[in-house]
């Protein structure tokens, strides 16, 4: 019974946070751009979320006649499913975790690789030049950044000696991994932005060039699923950064552990939005160059140094 409660709790909180982020992002972007943001619907505009949901549910859900219907309908579902599955291995608190898997981190990396299918298939099934261009870009970008997203976590895995996210948090009782693994943290953050294709790396969408990229042809709630999927991705990466580098639920005991976890996650969600507000989109070749020529050597160096230090300290 407790198991069901945990699943329901995780599901409801993740979906609520993802929907609420639509409002939070608009308010924060307004804050950074000297505006007010949505403040008309309800107190502080909080009911804007509900208004947006009602709107998107009642929009016409149109499938283009030239599209590959089955794949077109399936694509947004894959995105939501892979991200929601990943939340299963994230420890919200000491015993608040759906699946305490000993390969939790690999499960996350595998799922985020599967998430690429959603975008590639969505663009392919749309049968539209811009959508296809968007999904080609997305596949190249996500494969590139997947490589060192995994590699940037190797340092953490070596230090915690485990793939289980719960063990990784427990290993941080002595000190957060962000200090010894600062390079790993920065690269994971950059790769996380690219994985969720948020604004500095929103090249698959690139509304200046590709209409809306891979979801140009999507409307109604199918578009809404891509939209909410993006926010769930942001929440996921933020939760992972908090777990892997900032001690997850660990914190002074005057607040409950789950609260510390949410506080750290919320901080990184705000960082995502701040970065979106401040940085322009790089050119496609610049993105690839940064990935292969700068970040990949850097992350390999990080693994080398971490490994060397660990062998040295163990041999003492």
């Amino acid at each position: 019974m407790k198991f069901v409660f945990i699943i329901a709790g995780v599901l409801i909180s993740v979906l609520t946070i993802a929907a609420g982020l639509i409002y939070v992002e608009r308010r924060l972007l307004a804050l950074f751009q000297d505006r007010l943001g949505p403040n008309r619907v309800g107190p502080f505009g909080l009911l804007q979320v509900i208004a947006d949901m009602i709107k998107i549910f009642f929009k016409e859900d149109w499938i283009p006649p030239f599209a590959d219907k089955a794949v077109f309908v399936m694509a947004p579902g894959i995105l939501i499913a892979t991200i929601l599955l990943t939340f299963a291995v994230i420890p919200f608190a000491d015993n608040f975790i759906v699946l305490d898997s000993n390969i939790g981190l690999l499960f996350f990396l595998g799922n985020s690789s599967l998430g690429v299918y959603s975008i590639v298939l969505g663009g392919w099934a749309s049968n539209n030049k811009y959508s296809l261009l968007g999904s080609i870009r997305a596949s190249a970008q996500m494969l590139t950044y997947e490589v060192f997203m995994g590699l940037s976590l190797v340092g953490v895995i070596m230090m915690a000696d485990s793939f289980s996210l719960r063990d990784i948090v427990e290993a941080q009782r002595g000190g957060w991994f962000v200090i010894p693994q600062f390079v790993g943290f920065v690269i994971f953050f950059i790769a996380g932005i690219a994985e969720t294709h948020r604004t500095p790396f929103d090249i698959p969408e690139a509304d200046g060039e590709l209409v809306a990229g891979y979801h140009s042809e999507y409307s109604g709630m199918k578009f809404g699923m891509f939209f909410v999927g993006e926010y769930m991705g942001v929440t996921l990466i933020s939760a992972l950064i908090a777990t892997l580098f900032f001690g997850g639920w660990l914190g002074p005991s005057f607040l409950p552990p789950a609260f510390w976890f949410f506080l750290k996650t919320a901080f990184f969600i705000c960082m995502f939005i701040l970065i979106r507000a401040s940085l322009p989109r790089p050119r496609y070749d610049q993105l690839m160059e940064l990935g292969w020529k700068v970040l990949l050597p850097l992350v390999l160096l990080n693994i080398l140094i971490t490994g060397g230090v660990l062998i040295y300290t163990h041999s003492l």
Binding site: A30, L31, F32, Q33, D34, R35, L36, N39, L274, I275, A277, S278, L279
Partner: peptide, 21 residues
Amino acid sequence: SILRSIWYTFLHAFHKRETQG
């Protein structure tokens, strides 16, 4: 310069609002 522009954008949170209610 990337970090600096992020910092400057953050400082805008404390600026006077351009929008009037």
